[in-house]
Amino acid sequence: MPPDIIIERSKFMNTDNNKVFKYLMNIDMIIAGFALIILVMITFFGVIMRYFLNNPFVWLQEVQLWCFTWVVFFGGGAAFRSGSHVAIDVLVDHMPAALKKIVEILGYLVSMAVLIYLLFHGKNLVQQLLQTGRVTNILGIPYPIIYGAFPIGCVLMIINYTMVMIKELTNKELNVEGGE
């Protein structure tokens, strides 16, 4: 969530609401954060249980992969907010500003198309897993819970990329008006 949007909205809310709103807008990061903490903790304690207590967590792998999947897909949207996604700018850097902007919008539209396609088929995959009742081997965790992060991640990425794009375009227009 771009900070300036939060500030703007906060004019219309009292501070308590603002705090709630801030947490709400970062809920993906909070979920990914918990998944990461659990991932590190079970791996560390898994080592202790296996080596020192000779009683390994037999469910370690499946919970590790669960957490990992959640970190990646819940974090995917947040990575747009922090500008962490990598892109190759070899050609675009040599383009005139106007063309750059067109290419940027094109890139956004391509990504949207891809993400919507993935959202749709990711949802279908989760539905298939629901129908066939696939669960993890040891703990019997339903796979729709684990892989559900995939379509959710697509939605989060669509929202975040859109917000970043809006912010970037409006900013640039302001700059142009400012007589750049």
């Binding site: 996604h85 990598v86 892109a87 190759i88 700018d89 070899v90 050609l91 675009v92 290419v103 940027e104 094109l106 890139g107 391509v110 990504s111 891809v114 993400l115």
Partner: peptide, 10 residues
């Protein structure tokens, strides 16, 4: 798309 600065993963 890769060389048009579309995010690598998309």
């Amino acid at each position: 798309f890769l060389f048009l600065k579309v995010p690598v993963f998309t």
